[in-house]
Design a protein around this nucleic acid. Structure first.
Lengths: 243, 243
DNA sequence: CGATACTTTGAAGTGTGTCAAACTCTGTGG
DNA sequence: CCACAGAGTTTGACACACTTCAAAGTATCG
């Protein structure tokens, strides 16, 4: 049984700054805040604290007490869990306009997972009380928040299904189809390193590498570095659903 | 690659009846509804349709369109996913006072997973519109609903961590510790068949059986049929966290 | 152009799933 | 009260997907 080389690679940075310039813009891109009046957006924006963090910095840790929640203004953030032997499972990657760390605002008070920046990022932070008050005052915001959590639940159900009921080739096939959809093109670049994609799919680099090769050899895709071209989308669909 | 013997064992029953007797009582036991005024509880109760279902009956299926959500009045319900080869993953088991199938009320419109009765059960059903209206009118209910979804998210994070980062012995150890906590006793009966426990832990009967025996042989537990006695709780803790 | 991070490949080991058969309960009808 | 049916459970032999460990190969950027 392997164990305990799992020293966190992420460091922690201190210091924070203000800066509302892109904040309101990011909020306008956010499903959560989009419905709000400009007035309310301004008010919420003025309550936010914006911090800049470089790549690979820990934002919070699983089990830690939460005093509020975050929004990505610029950059990218991973939310993840790590096993005692050091293997990582990425639960989600958040980009500009997306909020994270909201679970303890409504329940439990501690973060269920860890978060860290993937690249240099600007993050907005709101206190717990602020969001609860806003939600209690504005039924539309409450419904938007409910929709957000419900959507996340749906995502986790899919992930549980994938990790527990599908093998790695099926998971990768499904992931590639999602990327293809979001890029609306058969050709695209992976937005993560392959190691990160592996952690996102619940496996490891070496396995992912072999499966990528298999998919390429069997004519489903073409692979050059991080560039992927989907050659047989229906085939990937078949693979993904396990038929 | 195994495949396609996965014919659903669950049948579907028709017919429904009304019956509010235990309904309000169950609602009083529900975290979601507890905060409501008696008046509002009565109103919501009057809007519910109560159906009785025998054991092993399908309630809804993954991907199906949702017109509302459910509460267990009496009995037990599993929410689960099935792989193409017939393996089942139980996401959750709900008992009296617990609601399920609420995700599509707030997002997406379709059920993310399947649901079926584990035993003869009485289920209350509410229309989608009713809940949304109630949530919009009552900020406390909105916050309670947010807490419910956030708690479920937390549960799924734990489950993902277990399935993806832990081996079966660790998962079983963790599960037994939870049962021990909820029964507040070192000795208790499994509330599910071992096959169902296996599906709940993301494995299969045969593997679970071997792991149970291993835990017993190594002195962590004593096992007689479905009766479990925890002998070494700290040991299980160690096992569960993978140290 | 060299350092560092990322990626690929190989060989070997392991946990878990698969298949098949025997065994054990539990409740029911004779 | 016993015998039986059926579901649930256990066990064994085997297969295999995936991980682990190790090393070489390839980008990428200052």
């Amino acid at each position: 049984v392997g164990k305990g080389k799992g020293a966190p690679k992420e460091k922690r940075e201190d210091g924070m700054g203000k800066g509302e310039a892109p904040l309101v813009a990011a909020m306008a891109n956010t499903a959560l805040f989009r419905g709000l009046s400009d007035e309310m957006k301004e008010e919420l924006a003025s309550l936010a604290v914006v911090r800049e963090r470089s790549a690979g910095i820990e934002i919070f840790r699983s089990g830690e007490n939460a005093t509020g929640f975050y929004m990505v203004v610029e950059g990218r953030v991973k939310v993840f869990k790590t096993s005692s032997s050091g293997k990582e499972l990425i639960l989600h990657v958040f980009g500009p306009g997306e909020i994270f760390g909201e679970v303890p605002v409504f329940q439990g008070g501690t973060f269920p997972a860890c978060a860290a920046t993937l690249c240099t990022s600007r993050l907005a932070f709101w206190s717990r009380a602020g969001l609860k008050k806003a939600v209690a005052q504005d039924p539309e915001l409450a419904l938007a928040m409910l929709a957000l959590l419900a959507g996340r639940l749906r995502g986790f159900v899919d992930k549980l299904e994938a990790v527990s009921l599908k093998e790695v080739p099926a998971r990768l096939a499904g992931h590639l189809l999602l990327l293809r959809d979001s890029h609306q093109s058969d050709e695209f670049r992976l937005d993560l390193t392959k190691g990160q994609v592996a952690a996102y799919l619940g496996t490891i680099q070496e396995t992912l590498s072999r499966v990528f090769r298999k998919l390429a050899e069997e004519g489903y895709i073409e692979l050059l570095g991080s560039k992927v071209r989907v050659l047989d989308a229906p085939g990937l669909e078949r693979l993904s659903s396990g038929r």
